[in-house]
Design a protein around this nucleic acid. Sequence first.
DNA 1: ACCTTGACCACAA
DNA 2: CTTGTGGCCAAGG
Length: 105
Amino acid sequence: MRLTPDSPFVTDVLDVVESIPAGRVMTYGDVAAALGSRAARVVGQVMSHYGSDSPWWRVIRSGGHPPLEHEARALEHYRAEGTPLLDAVAPGYRIDYTAARWSPS
DNA sequence: ACCTTGACCACAA
DNA sequence: CTTGTGGCCAAGG
């Protein structure tokens, strides 16, 4: 099964993700909440299928961990755009969520 | 209307 | 730190 690219939830999620400034992050749950939903998992599915052309590394898991299976690639982006990290020595690093958290206005 | 699928979340042991 | 458990929810089939 797969969500269609033009599904309203999909386009809304991608809009929110692309609104996150460089160096800031939101959790999957935050993105869902920004849409008035609690569907954090659905946000994950959207990123999995359609996140490749958006700043997917700015969407992280609760607790400051980058998306599974993409820690290495994400770390390069964090270092490039100056996202605050707690343990900058991969692979066990975490993002400084309290400092980098972004809330759309 | 039911079943299935998840780059999730929170909490307990 | 690592499992396990139960809950969450949009959308295709």
